[in-house]
Simulated scan of single mutants.
Amino acid sequence: MRTISHHIPEPILAAYVSGNLPEPFALVVAAHISLCEDCRAAAHAHEQMGGLVLEGTDSVAVSSDLKAALFAQLDDMPLEAPPSPARAIGPYPAPVAEYFTGKEPRWKSLGRGVKQSILMNNGTGSVRLLYIPPSMAMPDHSHGGLELTLVLQGSFSDSQGFYARGDVEVADSDVTHTPIAGPEAPCICLAATDASLRFNALVPRLLQPLFKI
C-alpha cells in the first residue's frame, strides 16, 4: 500500500471532529480518514481531547420538570433498527458510497470524456465526483473560496504537486492551477467547494452555469 503524502490540515480536521465543518467538506474528510491511518489517528486524538474538555466543564442544574419532560419525550420516541453500515464500492470509500445507489454514481458528461456526478449542492457548498481520462488536462482555474480534492483512483498533478489515491489537495483563492490526470488510469476525484471556480478561458466560463461548477 502506498504512503499517503497529502493530508487534511489540522484546523480542518479539528472542525470536522467538533461537528463544525460544512457537510460537503465533511464528506471529503470522512472519505480521506477512511483511507488514511495517520489522519484517522489524529481525528481520534481530537475526539479524546474533546472528551477531556467536556469532563472538565462544570455541570448545569436543570429543574425536575424539565428533566421529566425530556425523559417523557425519549419514552415516546419509536425504536428503529439502526441502518446497515455502508460499504466501500470499488474505488469509492464507504462515506462516498452512501451518497449514491447501486454500484456506480450517476455520471453526466462534461465533454472530452470528462464526467461528473454531483452528490450534494446546498447552501453550504457542493461536492461532486469527477472522472478524468488519462493524461487529460482540466481547464486552468482559480477559486472563489476553499476547494478540497481527494483522489480515489489514478492520479493528477499540478503546480502544487503530485496526488494519488488517498491524497488531498487543499486549494484556496491564492491557488491557480491546471490539474492533469496521470497516464496510468482514469483519475476519479471527490471535490468539495464552497464557492464557484474561476476559469481563465472563455468557453469554461460560458458552460459554468450549465455544469454547476
Rank of each mutant, 00 (worst) to 15 (best):
R2F: 05
E10V: 14
P11D: 12
L21I: 09
F25Q: 04
A26P: 04
A26Q: 03
H32L: 08
D38Q: 14
D38I: 13
D38R: 15
C39Q: 12
A43C: 12
V53E: 14
L54I: 13
T57Q: 14
S59T: 15
V60K: 12
A61G: 07
A61I: 11
S63D: 05
S64E: 14
L66Y: 09
A69C: 04
A69D: 02
L70G: 12
A72H: 12
L74K: 13
P78Y: 04
A81L: 11
A81M: 11
P83L: 12
P91H: 02
P93H: 06
A94P: 04
P95E: 10
K103P: 07
K103F: 10
K108W: 06
R112S: 14
G113I: 07
G113Y: 04
M120K: 12
N121T: 08
N121W: 08
G123N: 08
I132A: 11
I132E: 09
P134W: 02
M138V: 07
P139F: 03
D140P: 02
H141Y: 01
G145W: 00
G145N: 00
L148W: 01
L148D: 09
L148C: 07
T149P: 06
T149R: 10
L152E: 04
Q153V: 02
Q153A: 04
D158Y: 00
D158I: 04
G161K: 07
G161Q: 06
Y163V: 04
R165A: 10
G166R: 04
G166T: 03
V168F: 02
V170E: 01
V170F: 00
D172T: 02
D172M: 05
H177I: 00
P179D: 05
P179A: 01
P183D: 02
A185T: 08
I188Q: 06
C189E: 08
L190C: 09
A191W: 00
A191F: 00
D194I: 01
L197E: 01
L197T: 00
F199R: 00
A201T: 00
L202H: 02
R205M: 05
R205N: 06
R205I: 03
L207H: 06
K212M: 13
K212V: 10
K212Y: 00
I213R: 02
